[in-house]
Design a protein around this nucleic acid. Structure first.
Lengths: 194, 194
DNA sequence: AATAATGATATGTTTCTATGTATCAAGAAC
DNA sequence: GTTCTTGATACATAGAAACATATCATTATT
C-alpha cells in the first residue's frame, strides 16, 4: 500500500527474526494479535503509533525522530550494535519445552516459588545466548521430572539446574553488554542511503 | 491519554517551532489539517504512522527504530545537531509578504519564469537563516512593485533582488551544513533520559 | 481601536485499525 | 506419514483516526 513506512515494518520483522521469535511468540510477548503482526509485516496496514511502539518495545527497539542532518551518524551508530547470535533450532526447542512445562506447573499448582522460576526461565529465553543443547536437555529433563505431586527434592533439582544455567548465561551475556571497542569520532557529512 | 508516545509529539512540536512554522503553515506544507496537528501536539490522538511520517518529513525529521543499546549514542548524536536560529517576527513577516505576492502573480499570470521564482522564494523561506529586515524589505518592495502588466524591467529588478538574497543565504547557510567540530568518540553506556 | 494570526475545539462523516477467532497451505520435526 | 509450527488470510465488530469546515478566545501587528 506504500505508506513510505515499509522500512519500519522491515526493521520490525528483522528485529523479530533476529530474536528468533515467531509472530505468535511476539504476539504473546507484546499482546498484539498474530494476525495483526502479519498484516503489519506485509505492509498491509497503516498502523497506529501505539501499536508500533508496543511491538518495538517488545523487541527492545525505540521509536525516534531523528533530524535529517544527523541521519548518517545515527545509522552508523545503529549499525555498530552487535546483534546476538541466534540459538539453533534445537536450542529453541529445548527452551520452549522447558517453558511450557513450567507454565503447566504454574497453572496446576500456583506458588510464589514457581512463579519466580517462571520469570527466570522467561528471562533466559530472552537472553538466549549460546547454549549447549546438552545442557539444555539436562535442564529440561530435570524440569519435566517435576509433577504437581513431586517431592521437594525433585523441584529443588530443577531449580538448581535452572539457576546454574542462568548464571552461565549471565556470564556470556556480559560480553554483549558493551559491544565493540570505542568507535572513532563520527562525521556529520552527507552520505548515501542504505 | 498516555500512549507512551508523548515525547514524539513534543519533538514534532519543537521541530515545528524551531522552523518558525505555525500549525497552519505546517498544515499547508504537509497536507495534514491544522485541527489534526493541534490534536497531535496536545497528545489527544493515537495517530497513524503515515501521519507521523508525513509531518516528520515536512519538518526534515526521519522516523527510526533504534536498538535500545544504541540509544545513548544516538541521543548524543542527535543533540549535536545545531539548530538554526529563528528569524525574527519581522523577518518572517517580510518573507510571508514576498511569498504571498509571488503566489498571486503566479496565479494571475502563470509562467515558467515566475514558477522558478516561486520555487526560489520557497527555498529561501525554508533556509530562513539570519537576514536583515532591511534587505528583506527591499526585496519585498521590488516584488510588490510587479504587476501582471508590469514591464520586464520591473520584473527583472525583483528577480535580481531575490537572486542576490539567495546567494547571500547560500553563504551563511553553509555555516550550518557542517556543524560544530568533530565530536569525541561516544560511548554506548547506559545513560539517564533527556 | 481595528485587524490579523494563532492554537484549541466542535461536529458530522468516512475510513480503517485493532481485536478475536478461525482456517489454510507449506514446511519442519518426529 | 503424521503432527507441529509457521506465516498468511478471512470475517465480523467496535472504536478511533482522518478529514473538512467552522468557531472562538487570545495574542500580535498596524
Amino acid at each position: 500500500m506504500s505508506f513510505a513506512t515499509e522500512h519500519l515494518a522491515e526493521r520490525l520483522k528483522a528485529a523479530r527474526e533476529a530474536k528468533g521469535l515467531s509472530q505468535r511468540a511476539l504476539s504473546k510477548l507484546s499482546g498484539v494479535p498474530q494476525s495483526h503482526i502479519s498484516k503489519i509485516e506485509s505492509h498491509a496496514v497503516d498502523l497506529r503509533i501505539s501499536s508500533l511502539v508496543t511491538l518495538a518495545h517488545a523487541l527492545e527497539l525505540e521509536l525516534m525522530l531523528v533530524p535529517r542532518q544527523a541521519l548518517p551518524a545515527v545509522r552508523s551508530v545503529t549499525r555498530s550494535v552487535t546483534p546476538k547470535p541466534l540459538p539453533s533450532r534445537a536450542e529453541q526447542r529445548e527452551l520452549a519445552r522447558i517453558q511450557n512445562k513450567i507454565n503447566d506447573l504454574v497453572a496446576n499448582a500456583p506458588s510464589a516459588h514457581l512463579a519466580a522460576l517462571q520469570r527466570r526461565v522467561r528471562e533466559i529465553t530472552q537472553i538466549h545466548s549460546q547454549l549447549d543443547v546438552d545442557v539444555l536437555q539436562k535442564v529440561r529433563r530435570a524440569v519435566e521430572a517435576v509433577e504437581p505431586s513431586s517431592s521437594d527434592a525433585t523441584i529443588r533439582q530443577a531449580e538448581d539446574a535452572i539457576h546454574s544455567l542462568r548464571n552461565r548465561l549471565a556470564h556470556s551475556a556480559a560480553a554483549y553488554k558493551k559491544p565493540s571497542a570505542p568507535r572513532p569520532a563520527y562525521q556529520l557529512e552527507e552520505d548515501s542511503d542504505d
